[in-house]
């Protein structure tokens, strides 16, 4: 940890168990606060309601054939996750450190015998737990509705979707915390987070689409460029996990499936991990260098 340049603010002897204990204490505080906030309730409800609507509509439209498209339901849920989860995670991360700093909480906490990294990790873990709760409540409710509507589906797909949604939430939370570590005011941090959300959800995809049409990008270039967007990585990884092929995504998806096959899991995993680790490390570096005020 000291290799990251984050030194204890108070020169006390520290052992690993106490590091863990401090981190977990902060995490629990963060989780409690997150769960009690109006935002958590609002996002959880919005996510659950949208997901349930998608499940309900796709379950009822099977046209008497007795067949139901769980693939299509998954796609609908993927769509909701892509829209809601990044917004949730980015704003939660962005508000965390900046609002503490604004209220002077940060200097208070840093005056305690804890490392700044412990504070950062504690906040991260606490918020991540709250996001996990929100996601599993929403998607769990969807699974119950689908089962009740008699959709015969592999339960692994919904578990897979939940897991990857959580991975996406972790990545976006990490970006949010970096924004938070950089911003001086909470309002600025949240505004920036929403801007980043817009870029990831809409702008980058639209730009890439325009690029495909205007610059005649080759499909392999298109696929590799799309890997840079964590939302696309999440989407492709989910589909790859559920269907074991990306051919539903047209020529670029076919190219990816045929060129990389099972290695896609590793590729998607590496890109997702990078989105979790890199922004969080940068946030840690920022936090250790800056004054808490």
């Amino acid at each position: 940890m000291s290799a990251l340049g984050i030194l204890p603010t108070v020169g006390v002897e520290r052992t690993p168990p106490s590091v863990l204990r401090n981190t977990m204490t902060i995490a629990q505080r963060e989780l409690r606060e997150a769960v009690r906030s109006r935002w958590f309730l609002l996002y959880t409800l919005a996510f659950a309601v949208l997901g349930l609507a998608v499940s309900f509509v796709s379950a009822s439209g099977s046209g008497g054939s007795g067949l139901s498209g769980f693939g299509r339901t998954t796609a609908g849920l993927v769509n909701i996750v892509l829209l809601v989860v990044p917004l949730m995670a980015l704003t939660a991360g962005a508000a965390s450190i900046a609002s503490d700093r604004e209220r002077g909480m940060l200097s208070y906490v840093f005056a305690q015998p804890v490392w700044r990294l412990e504070v950062l990790l504690g906040k991260y873990i606490g918020l991540a737990a709250s996001l996990l709760a929100s996601l599993s409540l929403g998607l769990g409710a969807c699974a119950v509705i689908l089962a009740w509507k008699g959709i015969a589906a592999r339960p692994a797909s919904i578990v897979w979707l939940t897991g990857l949604s959580f991975a996406l939430a972790l990545g976006m939370l990490s970006v949010g915390m970096l924004i938070s570590a950089l911003a001086r005011k909470a309002s600025v941090a949240v505004g920036t987070a929403i801007f980043v959300w817009l870029i990831l959800v809409f702008v980058s995809d639209l730009a890439l689409m325009a690029g495909t049409v205007a610059l005649r990008l080759r499909i392999e270039e298109l696929f590799l460029l799309s890997l840079l967007n964590p939302l696309q990585v999440f989407k492709m990884w989910t589909l790859h996990g559920v269907d074991a092929t990306l051919d539903v995504l047209g020529p670029a998806g076919l190219y990816a499936s045929e060129e990389y096959g099972a290695r896609l899991h590793v590729m998607f995993g590496a890109f997702m991990l990078a989105w979790v680790v890199l922004p969080l490390s940068a946030a840690a570096a920022m936090l250790s260098r800056r004054s808490p005020l």
Binding site: A75, V78, N79, L82, L83, V201, F202, D205, L206, L208, M209, T212, V213, L217, I219, L222, F223, S226, L231, Q232, K235, L239, V248, L249, G250, P251, A252, G253
Partner: peptide, 12 residues
């Protein structure tokens, strides 16, 4: 432009 299928299911 079939390559645009890559953006299926995305909010864009």
């Amino acid at each position: 432009e079939p390559a645009l299928r890559l953006f299926l299911f995305s909010p864009a």
